[in-house]
Each structure stands twice: as C-alpha cells, then as structure tokens.
Design a protein around this nucleic acid. Sequence first.
DNA 1: ATGAAAACATGATAAATATCATAGTTTATA
DNA 2: TATAAACTATGATATTTATCATGTTTTCAT
Lengths: 241, 241
Amino acid sequence: MIFIMFSLTLTLIVIGMIKCEQCIVKQFNALKSLEKDDLIRISGCKTSKFIKKGETLFREGESINGVYCIKEGVCKLIKLSANGKDQIVKLVVRGDLLGQRSLVTDEKSNLTAIAVNEMEICFIPKSEILNDLSKNANFSLDMLQDMAKELRIADNVIVDMAQKSVKQRLADVLVYLNTTFDNDEKGYLGVTLSREDYANLVGTATESAIRILSQFKKEGYISTTGKQIKILDLEGLKRIE
Amino acid sequence: MIFIMFSLTLTLIVIGMIKCEQCIVKQFNALKSLEKDDLIRISGCKTSKFIKKGETLFREGESINGVYCIKEGVCKLIKLSANGKDQIVKLVVRGDLLGQRSLVTDEKSNLTAIAVNEMEICFIPKSEILNDLSKNANFSLDMLQDMAKELRIADNVIVDMAQKSVKQRLADVLVYLNTTFDNDEKGYLGVTLSREDYANLVGTATESAIRILSQFKKEGYISTTGKQIKILDLEGLKRIE
DNA sequence: ATGAAAACATGATAAATATCATAGTTTATA
DNA sequence: TATAAACTATGATATTTATCATGTTTTCAT
C-alpha cells in the first residue's frame, strides 16, 4: 500500500501534475490571491505540459482563451514587424502568468510565444478563472497591479528603444539576463540565447549584435564559449554608452 | 427664482463644474461602469481645472494619488532618458483617464505629463475611487480592459521603435494624428505640435525630424503653414518605408 | 510695434547601423 | 562519426541618423 502511494506520487511528479494549491510558483503571480478552494477547483481543470526548446505555445492571431502559468523555463514573446523582422517584446520566466490579456478581452493574441529552453507550464482555461475575477476583489486587484507593472516596464522599454544606442541596449540585455536568472555552475548566464535572439531583443541586425558582442569580448566585459556568455565586468557593462 | 437657477447653472458651466453623472466624456473610459450614486459621490469631491498649454500636470517621481479625467485637450506623457533627451511615450486625449496606475500601486509616477494645448481636466482623489475598485466588479473589469489595451498598444510601439526607420515612424505619427483628431476647418491636423515634439515622439534628433518633414513636403505628402501641418496624401504616407 | 528668444531650416560632416559577401564553427542527426 | 544545416564571425561598403554650424523665420513679452 505504501509502495502504491509512493509510486502514485512519483508518477504525478514525473508527469508534472503538482496541484495548484501546493505549487510554489503561484507565490510569484496573481494566483496567490485565490482561496484554497478556488485553487483546488482550478487545479482540477488545468492542463500540465512540457514544452521543448523552440516549440510554439501560441501564435500571433490565435485565440488563447486562458492563462499559462510558467512553472519552469523561459519563453520569448515575439511580434513580426511590417518589414519582416521578428522583435522579441519580452521574455517570460518562471512564476509569470502568460496571457492575462485574454482573460479580459476577446481579441486574438498580439504576440507569438516560443520556448527558449525546456519548459513546464500549466494552462488554466479562461472559463474556469473568469468567475474569480468578478467575485474575488483581491485577485482582480492583483491582476491590475501586475498589468500596471507590465505597463511601467513597457513604457521604459519604449524610451530605451527610442533613445539608447544598439550597444547600450545590448549591454542592458546582458545586465538584465545576469540579474534575472541564476548563473550556472561555471558562471555563464542562466539562459542561452542565439545571436539572432539578442538581435531581436534589441532590434538590430544579427551581424550587428554579433559584432558588438565580439567587441564586448575584446574589451573584457564578457567571455564566451559557443553560445554561452559569461559576464566578467557587470559594472563596466552598466557604464556603456 | 428661475433667473437664479439659470445663473447658477451658467456659473457652474463657466467654471467647468459639470457633474460627473452628466459628463459626456465618462462614456469613453472606465467611469461609465460606475452606478449613478457612485458618480454623484465622486462628483462631489472631484476638482475641475483648466490647464494652459505648456503647463505641467505632474512630474516623474511625484505621487499622483488619483486619476485625471481628460475632458478637453491633449497632453503628452514624457520620460527623460538617461542621455538627457525627452521621449514622448504617448499622447493622452479627451475621454482618457490618466494615472490609473496610481490607483493600484503606491509607486511614484514614472512619467511627466505636460499639456499640449488648452486642457480641461477633472481630478478624482484615489481615496474616493478605491472602494469602487473592490466593490464594483464591472468597474475593475473595465479598468483591466483599459490596461490590457494600453499594454497591447505599448507592445506595438516597442516593435515599431525597434524595427522601423525614423522616416516610417514619423509618417506613422502623422497618420495617427490624422485619424485620432478631427482636422480643423482648413484641413490642418487637429493638434499642433512643435518639430521638437515630433522628434521626441519618434525618438530622433530635432534636426532629423525637421529634415524629414521638409522632405515629406517636397514629395507632396503634406503641406505646412508654420507649425500647422496638412495631410495631402494619407495613403502615400502609409506606404512609406 | 519692436527686440529678444524660441523655433525652424539646411548644409557639411561624423558616427552608427544595415547590408552584402564570404568563410569558419558548431550543432543536430542520419 | 560523417555530413548537412544552422549559427557565428568579420570585412567591405552603403545607408541612415546624429552632430555641429549658421542663418532665417516665427513667436511673444514689453
């Protein structure tokens, strides 16, 4: 009997079926404001998934009809610009909720979401969570606060895009990655991006991103091993202009 | 007696004391979801103001502690970037609510608001409206929808800033102004901005904005009389790349 | 109305960035 | 483990944008 329970728990863990009410990452987002009963109800209808690097969660123009809770991994939110280039609008990380906008509007998604590395996510259908929005003032206030924060960040990104040089923006990205993700054992950035991803994050040509990273390397700000990047002089990067 | 009533009404109108529940512009924002009783209560504590062109409503770093309802006129939301240049993050127009973020966070304002022309605004203290957020689900849902929309727009601006050329962005701004504001009797854009404002909207040097506007003029897309700009070839502007 | 200040305009030049070309490296996988 | 495909790197050059300089026009307060 004990063996069976153990085996069951193990299986649940292996296929990612941790219950919402026990899940650690809910601490980091608006779900923390839900009552235990509601979390249990939501847990019953959520879908857990593992997503491989490079897989698409959803595309621009699709209906989402729910929120994704990022349990592990990183994904990039991309928009294809009129001139055919991809722009990474933001990175979504462990603990973040993805698709809040779909809860309050019926619009199609404005962005495409693609996994940057192995991800573990839970999908909660809109229908299941919509009631909480109208009945639980704390939850909707929390949601408002999240959006307000995202809006402030977006405004700052606009200013940076408009006013800073490509080199500054690239330095900013490195600083951001360094502070947002734990470095690995060897001191490399915790997220591995392609040079093209870097270019699409700062809005420049891939060659330009490569060139500037090479320059950073020559000047001793970073070192690289293949795609992996190690920050050697964080304060120096912050001073770049 | 009739004369006194008439005189009173007239005075109220002249000093801008239209009551919220009768105010047309509330249709355009989240206030439309409040009950009549709540609007009357709010009306009782709101402050009405006329703001002259160039005046500052609030500055980056200040506490706002309430929302402004824009009854008439336009203001620009500015952020000073690290390199000392102003960036206009967005224009706020008749019907918009300004400062929603202050309702759900205690942070200082991230932006500075300056009147672009003569404005008429009402200020509603945070204390008075906070209760409505927790008690009126429609109101807070409306607020969420507003923010979701702003977020989508901000994401699009990020992509444009990162991927489009200065010329394209400037053409976009002209198209935006043309569609957002009614042109005056002579067909000029309904909002008059300085060349520096145009530069700060698209994130370029003032000389560059001037140069490109001159070019648009030569190429027959627009005509100008002093600061005033008339769109001659809207479709042409949309096609610029 | 008038003079000073602000805004507009444009040339010359420098700096930043994109594009095209080519080659070396890494990565994935058959 | 061989091989193609994808990614990284760098040079040469073109294009875009910023900066500095200077003159003109408009605006505004007296």
